[in-house]
Design a protein around this nucleic acid. Structure first.
Length: 430
RNA sequence: GUCCCGUUCGUCUAGUCUGGUCCAGGACACAGGAUUUUCAUUCCUGCAACAUGGGUUCGAAUCCCAUACGGGACGCCA
């Protein structure tokens, strides 16, 4: 029976590396039909555990990684907060004491190591041997247990079969193996996964780096599916050329032996690309639903909002851009981007707008097709590039140089509003 | 410093276990071009890697060794 766990420490942040560790644990559990345990390692009592735990739980839920045992869901091996497991740690300390494996020094309790090479049987790295040279503290002089101790005790007590964690723990594993043996417990299989390195510079990504936190991506309106998909590919691949793939397919193919050994650098451009692909692949229904959560509260007809959003999907790469794409649809006093205004001067904007105004005056249906036809005709008539009209008029209507399809936005705004805005622009562009 | 892990295009990777089909494939990025409705999209083309040196072998990206480089751990942090 496969039992894996993700055991974060509630620091107040959810590090992207932690999220990837959680993901690989979750993927493996789901792949083999095992149990995924979430355990909170809050041995540091100083911190604001509750809020800090919420950050992690929120991130886990956001990325849709559900746990089978742990906070909120319970389970047979609880409690799942280390701060509530003192009695258990006491029992396990007694086991070591009876076996004469520990001693006290300066008020702290030390564990006696064997000084024999310890086998770390790692599914990713093979058989690694490391010798622990020095006895180490398992209880501080203030009476609180140390990470190495509680981590192993909980893995024993929770019957964890596979320890999947970052490679930074590989060297610690010799301590842990010594402890497993001292308890007379079976030593779990290990899988030390490669670390995520900084996008720029050297070293592993730390919480102070830009984009190191799951919260960052959530705040920047990334789609969780896209982030999760990207994370799957950091150290693992389906072995064919697929990259964007449904999580069910990843679960089907995922295995610990296929994880890479070498560290991976985080590439935000590739993530952005992947996010854009996920945005494009959303159904219109999903897109509208998501879009509405991001719009400021405005008192407008729901149908109008839908029409505005509907013309955005084909060009939107990230929901972070949405507001910039649509805000002027709901605000008659939108501002003109000053820098762009200067650039447009060379297109003789007043002339373009007047020509366009004249052309739409007797236009029959205010439709995408008709509007496109007029611009083409105007360009031909005056010997000007269609782009000059498009640039100028988009700017006049929105104050922006980017946005949804030019021809599609006008019918949504409506003939009257387009006319009004063009006239206002005439004054603005003086 | 000691110990552990790693090393294929700028980046993520396929290929390494089971040596020949790899003068190394895909993706992102970048550069050019085409289409288009400006920005964007889409499409095409291009650029670009087996860390180095020794072995083993008829043959090595693939096996072995050394060196270099990168990463990690050496806390009464987790």
């Amino acid at each position: 029976m496969v039992r894996v766990r993700f055991a974060p420490s509630p620091t107040g942040f959810f590090h992207i590396g932690g999220a990837r560790t959680a993901l690989f644990n979750w993927l493996y559990a789901r792949h083999v039909g095992g149990t995924f345990v979430l355990r909170i390692e809050d041995t540091d009592r100083e911190r604001h555990v509750e809020e800090a735990t919420e950050v992690i739980l929120d991130g886990m839920r956001w990325l849709a990684m559900d746990w089978d045992e742990g906070p909120g869901v319970g389970g047979a091996c609880g409690p799942y907060f280390q701060s509530q497991r003192d009695a258990i740690y006491g029992e396990y300390l007694d086991i070591l004491r009876k076996k004469d494996k520990i001693y006290e020094k300066d008020g702290a309790i030390y564990f006696r190591v064997s000084r024999e090479p310890q086998l770390i049987d790692d599914l990713i790295r093979g058989q690694v041997y490391r010798t622990e040279e020095k006895d180490f503290v398992i209880f501080r002089s203030n009476g609180t247990p140390v990470f190495h101790f509680v981590n192993v005790v909980d893995d024993v007590a929770m019957e964890i079969s596979h320890v999947i964690r970052g490679e930074d723990h590989l060297s610690n594993s010799s301590k842990h193996v010594e402890l497993f043996k001292a308890f007379g417990a079976p030593v779990p299989k290990f899988a030390h996964i490669p670390l995520i390195l900084k996008t720029n510079g050297s070293g592993k990504m730390s919480k102070r780096d830009e984009g190191a936190l799951v919260e960052d991506y959530r705040r920047k309106q990334f789609l969780p599916e896209a982030l999760r998909n990207y994370l799957c590919l950091l150290g693992w691949s389906p072995k064919d050329d697929r990259e964007i793939m449904p999580i069910e397919e990843v679960i089907r193919l995922f295995d610990l032996g296929d994880i890479n050994k070498n560290n991976a650098r985080f590439d935000d451009k590739k993530l952005a690309h992947m996010n854009a692909a996920y945005v494009k692949n959303m159904s219109m229904e999903q897109f509208l639903k998501k879009g509405k959560t991001l719009l400021p509260q405005v008192e407008v007809d729901e149908k109008y909002i839908d029409r505005v959003l509907a013309i955005c999907q084909e060009k939107l790469r990230s929901f972070a851009e949405l507001e910039h794409f649509v805000s002027y649809f709901f605000d008659e006093n939108f501002a003109y981007d000053g820098e762009a205004k200067v650039h447009l001067k060379k297109h003789d904007p007043a002339a373009r707008i007047n020509e366009f105004l004249a052309a739409i005056e007797n236009l029959g249906d205010f439709s995408e097709e008709n509007l496109e036809k007029i611009v083409t005709e105007l360009a031909e008539k005056y010997g000007i590039k269609t782009g000059d009209y498009i640039h100028t008029i988009r700017f006049a209507l929105s104050g922006r140089t980017v946005g949804p399809s030019f021809y599609r936005m006008m019918p949504v705004m409506g003939r009257e509003r387009v006319g009004k805005r063009l006239k206002r622009a005439l004054e603005e562009l003086e």
